[in-house]
Write a protein that binds this DNA or RNA. Sequence first.
DNA 1: TTGCGGCCTCAACCGCCGGTCGAGGGTTGA
DNA 2: TCAACCCTCGACCGGCGGTTGAGGCCGCAA
Lengths: 211, 211
Amino acid sequence: MLQVLQAEFADVTISKLRFLEAEGLVTPARTASGYRKFSAADIERLRYVLTAQRDQYLPLKVIKEHLGAMDRGLRPTPGGPPAAPVAAEPAGLPVAEDFGADRTELKLTREELRVAAGITAELLEQLESHQLVVARGNHYDGDAILVAKAAAEFGRYGVEPRHLRPFRTAADREVGLIEQVAGPRRDDKTQELAALAVRLHAALVRSRLSR
Amino acid sequence: MLQVLQAEFADVTISKLRFLEAEGLVTPARTASGYRKFSAADIERLRYVLTAQRDQYLPLKVIKEHLGAMDRGLRPTPGGPPAAPVAAEPAGLPVAEDFGADRTELKLTREELRVAAGITAELLEQLESHQLVVARGNHYDGDAILVAKAAAEFGRYGVEPRHLRPFRTAADREVGLIEQVAGPRRDDKTQELAALAVRLHAALVRSRLSR
DNA sequence: TTGCGGCCTCAACCGCCGGTCGAGGGTTGA
DNA sequence: TCAACCCTCGACCGGCGGTTGAGGCCGCAA
C-alpha cells in the first residue's frame, strides 16, 4: 500500500504520511492493534495532495481547503482549484472558519490609533464625525492608521476632513459594487476586485489630471 | 513611488522590495546617490510578482523563472502567468500607477489604444460613451490604456462600463479638489496630492471592505 | 521465548523560505 | 542644523514541511 504510492511519487515516506495525517489531510483507518490501514480512497486522496503540491506548488493549508470543499460535495476539480467554497452556510451559525485571516486584524485603541497616525485628538474626532475612520466595537484596525495619516497630510495642504467626505462616499459605493459582484464573503475574488478598483481609480485620477 | 504600490498591495514594504531585488526579481535603476528608482516597468514587474505570490501561491523561485521566460519573449509554462506583462509593443507598455512617470506624452490612435489594452471595439465604445476613456484631439494617452485594461478585467467579473461610472465621478471630484488646492498647473504638488488621494482612497476601500 | 524488524506515539529538531530588524552611515530639503 | 528618508550588510525570525530518535507494542519465525 505504501509501495503503491512510492512507485508513483518517489519522495513519499511513512514519516510524511504520518505528518499528513497529523495535519488532517488524510484519516486512514486503523487495525485493532493501531496500525494505519490506507483504503483505496485514502490513496486517491493522497495522490491528489501530492500532485497538487508538486505540480501547482500549493501549500498544504490550501490543499486542505480544497479537499474540504470536495468533501462537502463541491466539484472534484480536475486540474484547478475548486470553485470558491462559497456555498450558503446554514444561516445563524457563527461558522468558525474566519479565513483569509488578514494582517489587518490589528486591534488598536483610540489612543493607540491617534499616536500611530501622529494626529491630534481633534483631527481624529473630525475624522470620526465624517466617518472616514470608524471603530469596530471599540477598536480600530490597521487601515484606520493609513486613512488617518493620509488625512493628516491633506491637512498640511489645508484640506480638512469635511472636504474628504466624497472619498468616503466613493469608497462605499465601490465596496457596494464589489460585494454585489463577489458576494459578501471576503475571499480572493474580493481582494482582486478591490485591487482592480484601486487601480482603475488611480488611472482615472491621473488621466483627468493631465487634461 | 513606494506608496503607489502600497495602495494596491497592503503588505509591500521597503524591506520586501530590497529583498526582491536581492533575489534578482527586479533590478531598479539607481540615482547618482544610490537610491533605488523604480521605473514604470519595474512596478509592473513587481505587480506581477506580488499577485502571482498572493493569488497563485507560487514560490519566488518559480516566479523568477516565469519572469526570465517572459524577458526572453517566451510564453512560459502551462497554467503559467496569465496576463503576462509581455509587451506586444515596441515601446514597452507603461502600465504602472507612477504619478511621476510622464506617460502623458504617449499619443495613441484609437486602434493602437484598443490593441494595447486588448479590448474589443465594442467595449472601447462603451468606455467612451461613459467618458471613462476620453480622447484629447484624436489621440489617447497611456492612462487610457490603464483604464481600459482595468475595465476589461472588471468585465470578466460581469461588471460593465456603466457600472463603472461612479469611478469617473469620484475621480472628477478628486481632481477638482486637487486643482483647487494646488492650482491648475501640473507640478510636484499636484502629483503629491494625487498620490495622496489614491492612497486615501485605497485605505478607505480596504477598511470598508473588512467590516 | 527470544529475537528481530516492523509499526506505533510524541517531542525535539532541522533546513529553507520569505522576509524583518538594527547598527552604522549617507542624502535631501526645509 | 535637523528630521526624515534612503542606503548596505549581517543577524535574526517565524512558519512550513517534514525528519529523527527515544521508548514502546506487534507479529512472525527459529
